[in-house]
Simulated assay, not measured.
Amino acid sequence: MKKRFYATGLADAVGLGMYLSLSVLFFDKAVHLPNAQIGLVLGVAGITSLLGAMPIARAAERFGTRTMLTLLYLVRAAAFLALSVSTTFVAALLASAVAGLLSRGISPLIESGLIARAGNEEAVGSLARLRSLRNAGMAAGALPSGAAIAIGEAWAYQAVLALSAVLFLVCAAVCRTFDDSGHTAQGGVSRASVLRDRAFLRITALYGALTMSALVLGLGVPLWVVQETQAPAWTVTLVQVLNTALVVALQVRISKGSEDFGAARRMMRRGGLLSALAAVFVPLTAFGGAATDLALVVAAALLFSVGEMYVIAGTTGAALLHIPEGRKPAYLAAFNLGFAVTTVVGPPLITASVGLAGWGWLGWGVYFTAVGLVAMRVPAPPQADAKATHTIGAAA
């Protein structure tokens, strides 16, 4: 069963990687939209993605993971097929809005199905492996997109989106084979309980705040490289490849031990401090030549990447310990919204900070240090407190 969840997550990531790698150029070259309309289409898709996650999770708790995933993939495939043949702004807007509505709801269902019967230690490892596979899948999805961009014709962009739709149909077929037993909500917990769980919401907020480092690496560092350094332009691609390779190679290993709440909090702190150190490295490029700038950017990318993995491991481990039995879909959907909100508020903050030169990077250093230290104040779940009390009593 797990292999089928991994296969679904991988195929899903490849399909999304195809779209994300060429979406802007698709709207420009194939749909022929002006820049303002492209921004509006992408903005609406981002907003609908925030709106869809929790209702989808609640529906999955009622109707089952298998049923909802199958339906969602069928609708997503239809949305991508519609998008591939869109020739007007309205058609592209509607198809993108539907695709966006589903985008933040599917991943939590794959995750919750994968770990439905797993203990915390097994769940942490499973989610880490899934993330590694998804990163590899996103990278693989960029390959056909790169071919389409090289061809530069509308039909090539449309073919890539149609291929994404086919992959989502394959995902729907695989999801039909899932076993829904144990994947639906159990009684006794209100649907709104996740919104009243302050400790869990604090972890979610920290997840969003700390994963800002991924956006700083993906957006801020490339802008800095091309605008403010003497490093070669291909450094941007090197940074992306390095980040993907590290996540694929090390995420599972770094996640080990995060099922312990104390260790999870320390991982969050470590991730924040590593990100802060990386931010301080970046402005040092002002004092070097091309080779020195390249070395400093690579060093910063390494620190950001390792910090990101510690953040993911720590926040995921802490979040899993706070999830009540039978509520994984809703809680994981809420947890994933932490990063979703960051993708909305992060880009304008990051682009503005690049314009502040070294002071902007110093500000990010202070920010990640503060958030990393705040992570140590996250309250432990009741079972962790009980375990600590039991251990103290036994020692006495």
Rank of each mutant, 00 (worst) to 15 (best):
Y73D: 06
L51D: 02
Y310K: 01
L215G: 09
A192V: 12
F281C: 15
V24W: 09
A264H: 08
M1F: 10
G338C: 04
V306G: 01
L356Y: 06
L217V: 03
T65V: 13
A209W: 04
S164T: 15
A233V: 15
P382L: 11
A13Q: 07
A286G: 05
G17W: 06
E111F: 00
L130T: 03
I323V: 15
L130G: 04
A165Y: 10
K328W: 05
E121V: 06
A36M: 03
A333H: 05
A185L: 05
G220V: 06
Q37V: 00
P108H: 10
L25F: 14
F339M: 13
F339P: 01
W234Y: 14
R62N: 10
Y157D: 02
R196P: 00
L74F: 14
E61K: 05
W234H: 12
M54K: 04
G272F: 07
I38R: 14
A249Y: 08
T343Q: 15
D28S: 13
S190D: 15
D180N: 10
V282M: 06
L238C: 12
R269Y: 02
G314I: 10
L109F: 10
G188A: 05
L273P: 11
F168N: 09
F63I: 03
G187E: 11
G307T: 08
P329T: 10
A233G: 00
S305Y: 08
Q251E: 09
R104M: 14
T342M: 13
G43T: 11
N243E: 12
S190A: 15
S213Y: 02
